[in-house]
Computed example of a mutant assay.
Amino acid sequence: MQTDKSPLKIERDALGAVYYWIDNNALDLDQVDYSDLYETYLTPIEGQFFEDCTQLFIEGKLQLEPTFLKTYSYWNGVAYDTPINGVLGNDFRRIEVYFYPDAVKTDSVTYSIRGRTKVKKNVCDFSGEVKIKKIYHVFERDTDTPDYYKIIANYSLKEDSTQNGSGVFRGIFGAYGYVTDNAPNTIKVDNSDQDGDGYMNRSYVGTWQSYRNSATVKRCMWGDNRLPFRFDFDIGAGEIRVNPKYASPEWDRFMQWEDFDIVEPENGDSRATYKNPWW
C-alpha cells in the first residue's frame, strides 16, 4: 500500500497518464524484503490503459520467447551469453547469477530453471521455479511510444545444500516485453533501450535464506543492468556507478570490465562468446 512515507510514489506524465516511481532516498536498510512493494510497483493502476492477459497465457494463446529466462548481456546491439549482476545484503556484496538456456515449461504457468551463482570466489549450483502470476498488456497514450507487456512472477531457487554458503532465493520477478507483427502471440524481451540511461529489465527482487542458519535472511536482487531498488548503492546518473563506500575487488572488476574475455565473432557469425565458462 502506498502512503506518504512509502518509497513508492505516483506521478502523472504530460498526457495525464499515471505511473509509479521509486524514491530511493526513502528506502529503509532495516527492511530486508522488498518483493511485495516491487509487485505493487509492477501492477498497473487506475488511470493506466491495460488488459489482463494472464488467462491467454494460461490457455497457451500467448507465450514467452524460449530464451526469455536466459541470462545474457548486451553491448553495442549484440547479445552475449553472460551472467548478470546483483546485490546481496546490506553491504551490497556483488552476486553474479547465470541461468542456463534449458528452461522448461512444466505446466501452464511454471518454468523449471537451472543456473549458478557466484559471490566472491564461492560458486553454487541452483535449480528452481519461476511461476507466472500476471501478464498485463499496457497501452501507451503517446502514439510515438509502443505499448508493452508486463510480466510478474514468483521465483524460488534452491542452491545445492551440499555446497558451501548455499541457501534459497525467493521473491518477485518482473519483466517488460513486446510482440511483433511477425509473432503476435510471443512476448520477446524488451531490450530496445538496453544501451540507454536507466535501462532495467528482468529484475529479481527478494531474499536469500541460508541453509546453515535459517535465521540468516538477506536482501538479494539482480537483473538486467540497473536495479529497481538502489538505496545509496548505485549513485550513477545515467548508468550504474557503485558508491565508493561499497567498493570491493568484485565491483572494481565489474566497473572496469575485467570479468570477461570476449571472443569476437568471425566469418559473419553474429554470436560472441566468452572464455570464462561460468565458472
Rank of each mutant, 00 (worst) to 15 (best):
R170Q: 14
T106A: 02
M1C: 02
F231D: 15
I58C: 01
F50K: 08
Q2H: 05
E59Y: 11
K150P: 02
S156W: 01
D160S: 14
F254R: 14
Y74W: 14
T43C: 10
Q31H: 00
S203M: 13
V189R: 15
K275T: 15
T110H: 02
T40F: 01
I84F: 01
R114V: 07
Y20C: 00
Y149D: 01
Q256L: 05
L37Q: 15
P7K: 02
L227F: 03
N267R: 13
G236Q: 06
G206I: 01
S161V: 04
N191P: 00
S161Q: 05
D232R: 15
D252R: 08
D91S: 15
L37W: 03
C220P: 09
D107E: 01
K105I: 02
E129I: 13
N185A: 10
S73K: 08
T71L: 06
I235V: 15
G165Q: 10
N122F: 14
P66I: 04
K5Y: 03
H137L: 04
R219E: 06
R170M: 09
N24A: 00
Q194E: 15
F57L: 15
L69I: 05
T273R: 13
F169R: 12
T71G: 11
N122C: 14
D181A: 03
G115Q: 08
C124L: 14
S156N: 12
T273H: 12
D190C: 04
I84L: 06
L69T: 06
S210L: 04
D252Q: 13
T145P: 01
G171I: 04
Y149L: 02
G236K: 04
N85Q: 11
N276H: 07
Y274T: 14
A272N: 09
N213W: 12
Y111W: 12
Y74K: 04
A103G: 10
T117W: 09
E239Q: 13
D261S: 02
N243S: 12
K131R: 15
N267S: 01
L62C: 06
N24P: 00
Y136C: 01
K70V: 13
G198V: 00
F126R: 05
L37Y: 03
D144M: 02
F229G: 06
P244D: 06
D36L: 07
Y211I: 07
P228I: 05
L157W: 11
W251M: 07
S108T: 02
D4V: 03
Y19N: 09
I240K: 13
E39D: 09
F173H: 09
N90V: 05
R93S: 13
L62T: 12
I113P: 00
R94S: 09
R219P: 00
I95E: 06
K121S: 14
N164I: 15
N85E: 08
N185K: 05
N213F: 13
D52Q: 13
D125V: 01
F173D: 10
T43W: 10
D252K: 06
A272L: 13
Q256N: 13
W251S: 08
G268D: 08
L37P: 00
V104F: 09
T110R: 04
S161L: 02
W251L: 07
E46T: 15
Y149C: 01
Y246Q: 07
N164P: 11
Y155F: 15
Q31T: 14
I10Q: 06
R226E: 00
D102A: 11
F233M: 12
F169S: 11
Q256F: 00
A175K: 10
S108N: 10
I132P: 00
A153W: 00
I151V: 14
Y80S: 08
I22V: 15
